[in-house]
Design a protein around this nucleic acid. Structure first.
Lengths: 193, 193
DNA sequence: TGGATTGTGTACCGATGAGTACGGATTTAC
DNA sequence: GTAAATCCGTACTCATCGGTACACAATCCA
């Protein structure tokens, strides 16, 4: 009941996500947001709380979407194939034709002033969560016998995660999708034997 | 002649550098700077121009200092040894005991709003310059015969640069020096044979 | 000792930051 | 048709942003 919303919440979140992704949390002002979303300020606050909550909700959508890629990759029969699918998928996701480049967990607030510290920490935690997921898939591979027993899965996971985060920086620099995919493939040459 | 400066310009630049490095260009306000440097605003403007020029001058010092590491590494007899020295040296430089973590060319302004776009582009250009320097050392190795002729030096340089930039993200996440050095060493396992 | 010159300190500027008060518009329930 | 509920839009709040005007202090040269 009451007057119905004149905008679609999910579409607004997607637009906010893309803006935060492209300009970072600190680099995106509320004026940028209201202009991009076509929503005026009080409506935005009524729907999403404040700037920080809006970011968190947009981030949630991003993460949910990316979980699909991780699950898809981890379903591959071997850890090696899983990682290949993952890094190549991330290369694509970080160079979407009409999307911002890189990954919002990296570009969102790699560093920041004091005001944005909670967001910075949240993103760092998300990056660590990705690394943990990779490590667990590698450990599964070890149990399955397709990853040599002498391999330290934490180290290997950290390495793979580092490469994907470096790819996010490269994407921001303007590296093409093809070049990024080459980087992803080369990184797998370090795979233990 | 005239009243002498009450502060040391180089020390002020170093302090500014560390602040920008830790909080990013957008995340660092002039109030942060004047407080950290112990200099009041007009003195800062008289000495360095404005915020953007101050950043550029601080960046210049950073880059000059890092050139030492690059030169040191590139002087190694083989390209492989050069890259090993470089990535391990960067692992150390990105986890200085009492310094900001990561690399200012990554943390300074990976993304930004419109106002900081010139700084963002400047940093992207510096990252590309690092990649170019690596590529040229690899090509030298190819001429010297210690890098196989079939290797695409541009691809290999991009991969190495990507790893070092990923290390900067990891450093911001809190990864220890030892773990970062392990990542650096693992990345060399992808070296072509 | 007195200009000329340069740096310092206070106190300010206009613009923009995030966030909100409030009245009018639009809907549902009765 | 009217009351209750929700949303929209204008116009504001206060704090902070980067940047500066101007008076005063400290030095050098004559």
């Amino acid at each position: 009941m009451g007057r119905p919303r004149a905008f679609d919440v999910d579409e607004a979140l997607d637009r906010a996500l893309r803006l935060f992704w492209r300009q970072g949390y600190e680099g995106t002002s509320l004026s940028d947001l209201t202009e991009e979303l076509g929503i005026n300020r009080p409506s935005l606050y009524a729907a999403f709380g404040n700037k920080e909550e809006l970011f968190r909700k947009a981030l949630e959508r991003y993460v949910e979407h990316h979980l699909i890629l991780y699950r898809e990759a981890f379903a591959k029969p071997t850890a090696r194939e899983a990682m290949e699918h993952l890094v190549l998928g991330l290369a694509d996701a970080q160079t979407l034709p009409r999307g911002p480049r890189g990954c919002i967990t990296v570009q969102g607030a790699l560093v920041s002033g004091e005001a944005a510290a909670p967001i910075q920490k949240e993103l760092a935690a998300r990056r660590l969560a990705g690394e943990k997921a990779i490590r667990e898939r590698l450990e599964q591979g070890q149990r399955d016998g397709d990853v040599p027993p002498h391999v330290d899965c934490a180290d290997l996971a950290r390495y793979i995660n580092t490469v994907t985060q470096g790819m996010a920086v490269q994407a921001a620099t303007g590296t093409s999708r093809e070049d990024l995919r080459r980087v992803a493939r080369m990184s797998l040459a370090a795979w233990p034997t």
